[in-house]
């Protein structure tokens, strides 16, 4: 049966998380359709038709979908859901906001953060901050899943030639209204797509001191992350938080600076290929999972690291 993916995009660009979701979809079906709901999102459509394995691109281009409010998009998806055995989206804040609403309207379960596809009805997902992996089987008529991007290598953004189908339905609820948005602008790679991440914790002491981390990141072409404690203290913005309740990352190299290694933080980064920890407390739990640990004062070690790169 066909499978529907809700694309993650900002009306200009198809987000890489969609490519990881398509990789998960390939293990379920070879008739993969992608829904692009947005406003003036023609460039996203052009990018998506070229993506490997995509058979059909469904386009709902209307002002009502500009901010992808869950109230509208969920009804749009339910409207076309009959044709599908699976509905997937990346487990991003957009996907997590939307898909449970879709599932409840369809009177089916929703499985969050799927990291492995065993068969079209059986999936693996982490629970308890990743301290356990549950294998779950669902007999629902439509299987609604959010996909943890770190579980699947992205498909190629090239090589496809999908058919485009225009959807005419307009669902414009007045219950919810977009007021404003404050999006971080940065020349650095996005946290969830970066191959190197340098993260700082409470040990950084202040937001200003994060420039130490940022200069290392700039030399490495890395993204910058943080622990919850650093975000709560106001050192850095909320969207830098890595962990159980923040972002999940799995770069080739993760450097944790002044981070103790609480289970909630580890939940978001322990699948990184190589982990480095810099901490002045040799008992810090982060050293139990680090490939390379350096017991040192970060205010000496980090500037030295920056110089030697």
């Amino acid at each position: 049966m066909s499978l529907l993916i809700i694309a993650e995009h900002d009306n200009n660009e198809l987000k890489p998380s969609t490519l990881n979701t398509i990789a998960a979809a390939q293990k379920i079906s070879d008739d993969i359709h992608v829904l692009i709901a947005g406003s003036q999102c023609q460039s996203v459509v052009e990018q998506t038709v070229q993506v490997e394995s995509v058979q059909k691109v469904l386009v709902a281009d209307n002002g009502a979908y500009e901010h992808q409010l869950a109230e509208n998009i969920s009804k749009l998806v339910v409207d076309i859901a009959d044709a599908y055995g699976h509905i997937l989206s990346p487990a991003t804040t957009t996907g997590k906001n939307l898909l449970p609403r879709v599932a409840a309207l369809l009177d089916v379960a929703q499985l969050s953060d799927v990291v492995e596809v065993i068969s079209p009805d059986t999936f693996v997902r982490p629970i308890y901050a990743g301290n356990a992996l549950a294998t779950v089987k669902t007999t629902d008529k439509v299987k609604v899943l959010t996909i943890r991007t770190t579980g699947f290598d992205a498909v190629s953004s090239q090589g496809g030639s999908a058919e485009v189908v225009i959807l005419e339905q307009v669902i414009d609820s007045t219950q919810s209204q977009f007021i404003s948005e404050q999006l971080a602008e940065s020349d650095r790679p996005e946290l969830t797509a970066a191959s190197i991440i340098v993260s700082g914790g409470r040990g950084m002491g202040s937001g200003e001191n994060f420039h130490l981390i940022e200069s290392v990141a700039d030399k490495l072409g890395a993204a910058v992350g943080a622990s919850r404690a650093a975000v709560d203290a106001g050192f850095v913005p909320n969207d830098w938080q890595v962990g159980q309740t923040g972002k999940t990352v799995a770069p080739d190299l993760y450097i944790a600076v002044g981070i103790s290694g609480a289970i909630q933080h580890l939940a978001g980064m322990k699948d990184s290929k190589v982990i480095v920890a810099i901490n002045k407390d040799e008992e810090a739990p982060i050293f139990q999972i680090a490939d390379y640990g350096l017991v040192a004062d970060l205010f000496e070690a980090v500037p030295e690291l920056e110089k030697s790169l």
Binding site: V136, K137, Y292
Partner: peptide, 21 residues
């Protein structure tokens, strides 16, 4: 939805301590 099984994730082993930057 039925939980078929619950497993431990593969444990990550501690690596080495380095002496300097």
């Amino acid at each position: 939805v039925e939980t078929v099984s619950v497993a431990s994730p593969s444990d990550r082993k501690a690596g080495i301590k380095v002496g300097s930057v």
